[in-house]
Amino acid sequence: MALETRVYQKERTIKFGKLLKASLSDMYHSRFLARQLAERDIKAMYRQSYLGILWAFIMPLTTAAVWIFLNSSGTVKLSNTGVPYPVYAFTGTLIWSIIVASINSPMQSTQAAKGILTKINFPKEALLLSGVYKLLFDSFVKILILVSFVFLYGVGFNTSLFLFPFAIIGAIIFGTTVGLFLTPIGLLYKDISKIITFGMQFLMYVTPVVYAIPSTGIMKSIMLWNPITPIVLTARDLVVGFTPEYLGYFSVVLAVCIPFLFLGLIIYRISIPIIVERLSA
């Protein structure tokens, strides 16, 4: 039986390609660990509460309710979106929250595992995967609510609804890619997570999350350039059964994201020992 040999030294002698292969293989082999970690966190989150899992429904429902109220009371005058506003707002906020959560997820998962990172050697990719699992769990609850909205407001069933998960995966890939690039620095400096929270608030207003793209003006051009726009719009079109007109841009964004996602994974793998050293020093 040949023993696996590990070498630890200063220089990185392993090529990017090999690192990526190792990273993906670790991610694949740590599925159980990732699931276990996600299960642990989800269970722990809801066990010490009376309403338990209901909280997962309460949060997105109230957010949607606020926008529905703002619209119906006339506080905010919104252009006609062509679909019942609750469905419009809810798909928007759903996909937006997935993007925000997946940007934060790599950093949060790694930060939360600080205690074990400095003590035990395990495949760190499992942390990323567990973050995605938790995200999928949260999204799943929200999707259930969304689907019931679709029927409740008489939008009706469209076969394109089956494609909606792909839009979600697109959102997760986009968010994770951005998140992975911010993670190494974000773990060193707390400023990064503050900037994300802060920046995402502003970004939301230049993305058609709760209102449609205006027909003219500077806002229109900003929104059209914004790479998050096609993700949000494609997702929404799939839900309500419109022809997704931004599918082209959506594919371009994804096609650009995937090589960057891999690069992000490589950087993550390289940076973890450096981060651990600074965390535990």
Binding site: E4, R6, Y8, Q9, S280
Partner: peptide, 16 residues
Amino acid sequence: NGLINPDAGKVTIKGR
């Protein structure tokens, strides 16, 4: 244990 990288030198470990 491979948690942090050395600044000089080399560690070679075989096995689990």
